[in-house]
């Protein structure tokens, strides 16, 4: 699977069971990444895609286990450390802001397992600068 996640400056993802932030430009980017392929997510994440034309979206609470090779998974409020072995690639978006957090991105990108291969920046609809990073296995 190809994991997609969004973090703040402290690798935070959620606070009080709510996503830290959202941005329509980021959603469009996620949909364009998936293209005609499958984009897996749970019902909570689908809440922000429900108005999108996302025919590729598959909604399932056990989506991390069901996603196949080369398929995208957008994860916001689920533990990630237990599925790390199944991840082929990580696409990490950064808000470049500091928000409160009580759920953080649990995969250590600083060790010898993952390597940053691409970085791009784009303006969000409400965020000045969103950074997109692509990590692949070493």
């Amino acid at each position: 699977m190809i994991l997609i996640a969004v973090v703040d400056d402290d690798y935070g993802m959620m606070f009080n069971r709510r996503r830290q932030s959202k941005d329509s430009a980021l959603r469009e980017r996620v949909l364009s990444l998936a293209g005609d392929g499958k984009l897996w997510m749970n019902a909570y994440t689908y809440g922000q895609f429900s108005d999108s034309d996302g025919s590729a979206i598959c909604v399932d609470e056990d989506f991390l286990a069901k996603a196949g090779t080369g398929e995208y998974c957008f994860a916001e409020n689920v533990p990630l450390d237990s599925c790390e072995e199944d991840i082929e690639e990580i696409i990490l978006f950064r808000w470049n802001r500091k928000y409160p957090s009580d759920v953080r991105f649990a995969i250590d990108l600083g060790d010898s397992v993952w390597k940053l291969t691409k970085t791009r920046e784009f303006a969000g609809s409400s965020h000045e600068k969103i950074t997109e990073e692509v990590y692949v296995r070493v």
Partner: peptide, 8 residues
């Protein structure tokens, strides 16, 4: 951090 979250 809380102000940022609300503002955004």
């Amino acid at each position: 951090p809380f102000e940022n979250m609300v503002a955004d």
